[in-house]
Nucleic acid binder design. Structure first.
Length: 318
DNA sequence: AAAGGGAACAACCGCGGTTCT
DNA sequence: CAGAACCGCGGTTGTTCCCTT
């Protein structure tokens, strides 16, 4: 079955030959591709326009970076995926020279398995139940070489309800697990938290206490970092964007924050009327369009205080 | 050396959104 | 304004390569 756009034509399918590649390259570099549907005819190819477009975008474009993904690229994919989900084209925009198809294939063939091996749900980036993890691990024949899951965050609590809500207040850490002493353990979603031990300095007694949580980074890095409410990276003392030692360029930070605004999974319910002026304005500006402008300044303070809202009820996540 | 299986990668398919007529 | 054509995206399938037995 051919593409609907060119079902009348006799088209070739399957892998591209070097001769076909040459024809396409010559045509596109000479005449451009203002209309893909006319490219096959003009270039002398027995392919449909859609196939030509795909071949050019995913393989022949001169600005493509070939070769395996670097660790930094892998971390970027994981971090942006946690925020945006399977928006491969959006994710690929943060990786110069990489295509959405390439990112998608890399995710499905490599990263997904690594996350599962670490006990993380590749869709939600939350912890999998041990049962589900084993099922998934068995399914993919997880390699022993995958890194072991390392708890990145521990906290004592007497309130399981409040602690459960913590994972929604702080999307960057996963669904907590409880032991028999009511101690919860969080594991970070991303590799770059794996070596950090983050300890809550305040015992959670009720939901309202969550708002005043302070976190101290006790990692070997030595800096005092704050968990990012965006679920992406951390802020250091000078409020610089930090993703586990990788400083994202300012433009990239802005671009990602822009996407956070658009990310449907970060929609919020409208806060109460007595919120701070800033939050109130944000809500008024954004609630009608059902998306919340996630403002880092209002949620993260340089002093290390996580959030300035006074009640969980006022900050109900969707 | 050959067969089998898995991983990685390339390409296709269908759908939704946008633009054109 | 409606339908057709086109484009872009995400999911899925097919192909090739490489490692193990």
């Amino acid at each position: 079955m051919g593409h609907h756009c060119c079902s009348k034509q006799k088209i070739k399918r399957g892998l591209w030959s070097p001769e076909e590649d040459d024809k396409l390259i010559k045509h596109v570099t000479t005449y451009g591709h203002s209309c893909w549907s006319s490219v096959p005819k003009l270039a002398g190819l027995q392919r449909c326009g859609k196939s030509c477009r795909l071949r050019w975008i995913n393989y022949l474009r001169p600005d493509l970076k070939r070769g395996s993904f670097t660790e930094q690229e892998e971390r970027t994919i994981i971090d942006v995926h946690r925020i945006l989900g399977n928006k491969w084209a959006q994710i690929a925009k943060h990786l110069p020279g990489r295509t959405d198809n390439e990112v998608k294939n890399f995710w499905n063939s490599c990263i997904k398995k690594k996350l599962i091996a670490q006990g993380l749900d590749p869709n939600t980036h939350n912890l999998l139940s041990s049962n589900k993890t084993n099922i998934l691990k068995n399914n993919i024949n997880a390699s022993n070489s995958f890194r072991q899951e390392t708890p990145a965050f521990t906290m004592d609590t007497s309130s399981k309800t409040a602690a459960s809500d913590l994972s929604t207040l702080l999307p960057c850490i996963n669904t907590p697990r409880f032991d028999h002493k009511n101690t919860i353990q969080y594991t970070s979603c991303s590799d770059h938290y794996q070596n950090s031990m983050l300890v809550g300095t305040q015992q959670i007694i009720s939901q309202s206490d969550l708002s005043a949580l302070e976190f101290t980074n006790c990692s070997s890095m030595g800096s005092s970092n704050v968990m990012s409410s965006s679920g992406f990276g951390t802020l250091n003392e000078s409020c610089m964007w930090d993703a586990g030692g990788i400083e994202f360029p300012i433009e990239q930070q802005k671009a990602i924050q822009q996407e956070i605004v658009m990310a449907p999974q970060l929609q919020l319910q409208k806060p109460n009327i007595n919120e701070s002026d800033h939050l109130q304005n944000l809500a008024e500006d954004t609630f009608d369009s059902a998306s919340f402008d996630f403002d880092f300044d209002s949620a993260l303070l340089p002093s290390g205080v996580y959030c300035n809202v006074s009640s969980m009820d006022q900050l109900a996540w969707d």
